[in-house]
Amino acid sequence: MKIQRYDLIQIIKNDFILYGKIHLILLILIILSASLVIITVYETRLLITQEEELILQKKKKNNEWRNLIIEKNSLSNHSTQKK
C-alpha cells in the first residue's frame, strides 16, 4: 500500500482560482482603498504645513509693511517739522 501525496500548494491555488475570485478582487480593492487613504492623508498634512508656512509669511509681510508705513510717516513728519 503506497501513501498518496498531495501537492497542497497546487490544491490551494486551484481552489482559490475556482472559488476565490470575488475574495481576491475584494482583497485587491481593500488594499487599493487603504493605500489611497494613506496617500490622501499624507498630501493633506503637506498642504496644512504649507498653509501654516504661508500664514507665517503673511504675518511677517504685514509686520514689515506696518513698519514701513510707520517709518514713512515718521520721516514725513520729521521733514515737515524742519520747514
Rank of each mutant, 00 (worst) to 15 (best):
M1P: 00
M1T: 04
Q4H: 13
Q4E: 09
Q4I: 09
R5I: 15
Y6A: 12
Y6F: 13
D7H: 10
D7Q: 01
L8T: 11
I9F: 12
Q10W: 03
I11P: 00
I12R: 02
I12H: 05
K13A: 01
F16C: 06
F16K: 03
F16I: 05
I17L: 06
L18V: 12
Y19V: 02
G20Y: 01
K21A: 06
K21F: 07
K21W: 06
K21L: 07
I22Y: 00
I22F: 01
I25H: 11
L26C: 08
L29E: 11
L29D: 07
I30S: 05
I30K: 11
I31E: 00
I31A: 05
A34Y: 12
A34H: 09
L36I: 06
V37C: 12
I38M: 09
I39M: 10
Y42G: 00
E43I: 11
L46V: 03
L47K: 14
I48G: 01
Q50C: 04
E52T: 10
L54N: 09
L54W: 04
L56P: 00
K58R: 13
K58I: 09
K59C: 02
K61P: 01
K61Q: 13
N62L: 09
E64G: 01
E64P: 00
W65E: 07
R66T: 07
R66Q: 13
L68Y: 07
I69M: 14
I69C: 05
I69A: 09
I70R: 06
E71P: 00
N73D: 11
N73T: 04
N73K: 06
S74V: 04
S74W: 04
L75A: 07
S76F: 06
S76Q: 14
N77I: 06
S79K: 09
T80K: 15
Q81R: 15
Q81E: 02
K82S: 11
